Amino acid sequence: MIEVELKCQLSPALLQKLHSKLEHMRFDGEVHNRDIYYDTQDYALLQQAVFVRVRNKEKVEFKFNENIEKVHGQTTERTFPLHPDTDQVKKMNALFTRFLPTWQAQPTVGAAISQNGLVELAHIDNKREEYSQNGIYVSVDHVAQLGDFLEVEVRCDENDDPEKAHTMLQAFVSELDVKHIGVGYVELWLHEHNVKAYQLGKYHL
């Protein structure tokens, strides 16, 4: 799956304006995501725009660009349970090896992190309101220590043309007069808490 998204910071006034628009969309509920992002000690994943996170102590997720020159906001995602089955183990370790050639294959996510010396990169605590309409998914995020954000997303098959998704997103936010942020929550967190790592990343404010 490819996710094409726009992210914008929300002021109180803009948040109020957005809620008027959301009244006409389907409310899909609220979620509270607690993410721990991992990397090598020399930030080898971050430098490749690869993000590995454990979400809510339930699963591990990879987010990366097939073409590193693509702008932030268009990513491929892969998800594995913390205790994957045999086929999932092979796919998970193959994906790690793709980005970390010295990777030592392990049977679980915990063992993989421990045995390969991955360290915690960032903690993102996000209380999210979710809405959807006509293939557009909207999240209003309240991120601890970072602020309030709007994330608008279209989910595509990996063979689809992402330009159509970009057009849909731009049309949705056009009347809101928002400014797109070309980084994710990890970069925003690192900008505040780990300037060295932030500077090594591919995406900047």
Rank of each mutant, 00 (worst) to 15 (best):
S20F: 05
H180D: 09
N67Y: 04
V152D: 04
V186H: 06
H204I: 04
L121Q: 02
V173R: 04
E77L: 01
G184F: 04
F51V: 00
P107R: 02
G147P: 11
L188M: 15
A171K: 15
F80N: 04
A44C: 13
R128E: 10
A49C: 06
E120C: 03
N159F: 13
E129L: 15
Q199T: 07
D87S: 14
L46D: 01
M92W: 02
Y185P: 01
S132I: 07
C8F: 09
D42L: 11
F80W: 03
Y185A: 09
Q104N: 12
D148L: 03
G201L: 00
H83W: 04
I124T: 10
N93W: 10
Q47R: 15
G117I: 07
M25V: 03
S132M: 12
P107M: 02
S114P: 00
Q115V: 09
Q115F: 07
L95T: 13
E151I: 07
S20H: 12
E158D: 12
T102W: 08
E187G: 02
M25A: 05
Y203E: 00
A105F: 06
Q133C: 13
D85P: 06
D87Q: 14
F51D: 00
E61L: 07
L176A: 10
K90N: 09
Q115K: 12
R26W: 01
H180I: 14
E192P: 00
N33R: 09
G73Y: 05
D157V: 06
D160N: 07
S11E: 12
L121M: 12
E187R: 06
T167L: 13
D28N: 14
Y137S: 09
L46C: 06
D39T: 09
A112M: 03
L6G: 10
T75F: 14
N65P: 03
H83A: 09
G29N: 06
E23L: 10
E158K: 13
E5V: 07
V178D: 10
P162F: 15
E58L: 11
W189A: 05
L95W: 08
H72P: 00
L6M: 13
N126T: 09
Q170V: 02
V71S: 11
M168S: 15
A165N: 06
T86K: 13
F96D: 03
